[in-house]
Amino acid sequence: MSTARARTANTRASSHCNATIVPVLKKKICLLGSYGVGKTSLVARFVHSMFTDKYHTTVGVKIDKKVLELEGAELTLMLWDMAGEEDGVPVRLNQVKDASGYLLVADGTRGRTLDIARDIQRRVEKEVGVRPFLLLVNKADLRDTWEIPESAWGELADSGWTVLETSAKSGERVEEAFLTLSSRMLNAPADDDDDDDDDD
């Protein structure tokens, strides 16, 4: 991946009173995919550098924040860790509307989760619109037992997808994934993501 390493800081509240003129940006990223693929773990690894093997299903949505400096801007990432999709209960996409980009997450050891990720991506394009995204095939630490065949990689590359093999457990390529997506969001054609509020 081409993204330059960025200095990341895990601050709870970003300081807005910098003397130098540093653009302060706030961007929303949604994590989408089947349940149990490791979305929560990827966020925990990226934000808190933590990993636990214990599975805890995400209810509704869980929002985390990470402030980082990227390409000369201070960027606050709002990470929306959405409840995983499961059979009969498709993930709700209305929260993706104001997102600047999203991460599709699949579990390498469960081939079906790749199909679900593809399906979610199609629905996002259709119902919400085009946003920068990456596909993360997680659980790279169990690579020996992956079900996703090698042939899938070629097909995905042909469709112009960027695929990263990540491991929330070891941390492999996790930071790179978030930074790559952030960089693409910053360089994407500007959409109206100002958070001002008109009033009555």
Partner: peptide
Amino acid sequence: SDLWSEPDGHGGELYL
């Protein structure tokens, strides 16, 4: 609203 979760400040989660 949609359902969301927050840390409860005691290491657990709140479903709101």
